[in-house]
Nucleic acid binder design. Structure first.
Lengths: 330, 330
DNA sequence: CTCTCGAAAAGAAACGTTTCGCTCTCTCTC
DNA sequence: GAGAGAGAGCGAAACGTTTCTTTTCGAGAG
């Protein structure tokens, strides 16, 4: 709409001075008032685009996700927006469900940094981008992408669930897990198995499944586990989707949650509140993850000359108790 | 990184010609090849920021939401991103939980349009923005904001739920509703009551609640309804949050879903699958709403001279059957 | 062989900022 | 009272494009 030139016309000041004012640098009180009055009258706001072009920074960060179908990922947007808004940065959302130039798109918009759950096909482009601007990975770590990252302690999360079940006296324990091709699931399952082993429970591979990381996958794995000759007394579901799928399969089976089968879910707080009895879950602190990722990015932006060595942040899972884990005697 | 100037250096062509090429206008075959080769070699991409500045359009739309805590709203982002990505537009996310200059922020970034669930305090600014760029409202309509909009047929959704319960023989029916200050809830409740009345059921105000539009509000309303002297046989919960709250209260009460009390929920597909028995719900087609909103915006962008009269699109609710509504005889 | 006409290329001016040197005006010090 | 130094203002050049206007080139017509 209006520009510095209009303010110049009204105040007689130079563009340089007006620029100084809008960048918070000191200006004579008299001039400050004049500018403020003119800006008010014009309803003026500096044009961010022009600013970006000239200054080479856009005060925008790209959030690149493999898809926007996943609740966890959407929540990342929310957390990042919140954290960055306070720092005066905006969020540009990009989904990259299939190969394309999503990273290039962000770069051409001059984003100052990228926070991403790295879509596999974008990893090379991300690596290239990381040479120029800070990149922070979240949720899972891509091979060959050496950048800062914020991840759940997935081993710990798996172990936490296992320990809980063991502490309640369970010995015959199943796992509804995800395929090991994504590091997050590999670790979660590994932590779970390790904890079982550490407690003298020999893993029974017919009970420890690794299916598709979806609701359907969870259903199928759960059916499989329930059909085992010697049904487990407890099961851990290693993600939100798997938990939902498993619950559906359990309900369909006619077995009763908590009574016939104990269950520890993952990341499904809402679900957990609505089931009867309430679900006990292991939960990742999604907002904290997003906030820490934003924090990392801001730190990199604040100090571009810092040690380029990637900083990896690990956050701890919570346990949210419910009533879906029965106490077994003996 | 690199710019037209670098391509000029490599090809000897003028900036104007290079610009023509990158805008898909015709260029001598020989030059086309030269440019492509140079661009390839440089890893060049035109700078979107400079383009925007010069052309006055950013090929970006702002999605302005009151908060990012609500799942429905996050899903709007997803749907809009998908629809706009195909048209070559990007999505800038802005949350405006408290008064501020969120709209100004978007405008200063030269967004070509805005899709919004209008935060009340931003309505005046949105109205001003709407004079310059297309604005599309979604979910609920703000007073005094005459723009295109895409809304659920909320009256119809309320009526749908009522009819379903009536058809199953219920006569004593409760409502867990939201405060009437937001049009969406007002309509939903109104449709529900109207349908009851149309079937000769005198509304009983102790059963028809209107509390805070939150999980806690749903819990409270549900407790209230269950405590009524003559408890209803069925209840409709008018939003996702209210449904969750009501379920929690129901579970806490010891009454059994579907057997002791029939329930129709709203917009809680995931929850619906996990309860026992499954919840019957009325659902709004979130992705369709987002897609239609994007479509409206694209139409406005394509034809800026069109009739400025607001176009209002209404989408129909679905019914997703479950087993939480008992059939009453007589 | 010149003239005309159209297509494509070139030149240059914008778009709205920031920033780099300067200049100017004070005030402080010796 | 002169010189230095700080603080503020100014003019102009950039940032990387698009677009308006002008120029060039080549082919076809007479």
């Amino acid at each position: 709409m209006s520009s510095y030139k209009d303010i110049q016309r009204l105040t007689g000041l130079s563009l340089a001075t007006i620029s100084k004012y809008f960048n918070g640098r000191t200006v004579l009180d008299e001039n400050r008032r004049a500018i403020e009055e003119a800006a008010e009258q014009l309803g003026f706001r500096p044009n961010t685009i022009a600013r970006n072009l000239r200054s080479g920074r856009s005060r925008t960060v790209g959030v690149l996700l493999p898809a926007l179908t996943n609740n966890f990922h959407l929540t990342i947007i929310a957390g990042v927006e919140k954290a960055l808004h306070d720092a005066g940065l905006s969020v540009l959302v990009a989904a990259s469900p299939e190969p394309g130039d999503a990273v290039g798109l962000l770069m051409s918009r001059m984003v100052d940094g990228i926070i991403t759950v790295p879509p596999p096909h974008d990893v090379p482009a991300l690596a290239a981008a990381a040479a120029g601007i800070p990149v922070v990975q979240v949720d899972w770590q891509a091979d060959g992408l050496a950048t800062d990252g914020v991840f759940l302690d997935n081993r710990g999360a798996g172990a936490l669930a296992a320990r809980l079940l063991i502490d309640h006296g369970h010995r015959r324990i199943g796992l509804v897990g995800g395929t090991p091709d994504v590091s997050t699931h590999r670790e979660r399952s590994a932590g779970f198995r390790a904890e079982l082993a550490a407690n003298g429970i020999t893993p029974d591979d017919t009970l420890l499944t690794a299916g598709a990381w979806t609701v359907a996958g969870g259903q199928e794995s759960m059916r499989h586990v329930l059909a085992a000759r010697d049904r487990p007394t407890a099961v851990f579901c290693a993600s939100h989707e798997l938990t939902l799928g498993a619950l559906i399969a359990l309900n369909d089976s006619g077995l009763r949650l908590g009574r016939d089968l104990s269950l520890v879910g993952f990341d499904a707080r809402e679900l957990a509140m609505a089931t009867l009895p309430r679900l006990s879950i292991v939960e990742q602190p999604t907002h904290e993850i997003a906030a820490r990722a934003a924090e990392r990015l801001l730190a990199r932006l604040a100090d571009p000359g810092a040690d380029p060595e990637p900083v990896l942040v690990t956050v701890d899972p919570h346990f949210v108790p419910g009533a879906s884990v029965a106490h077994l005697d003996g």
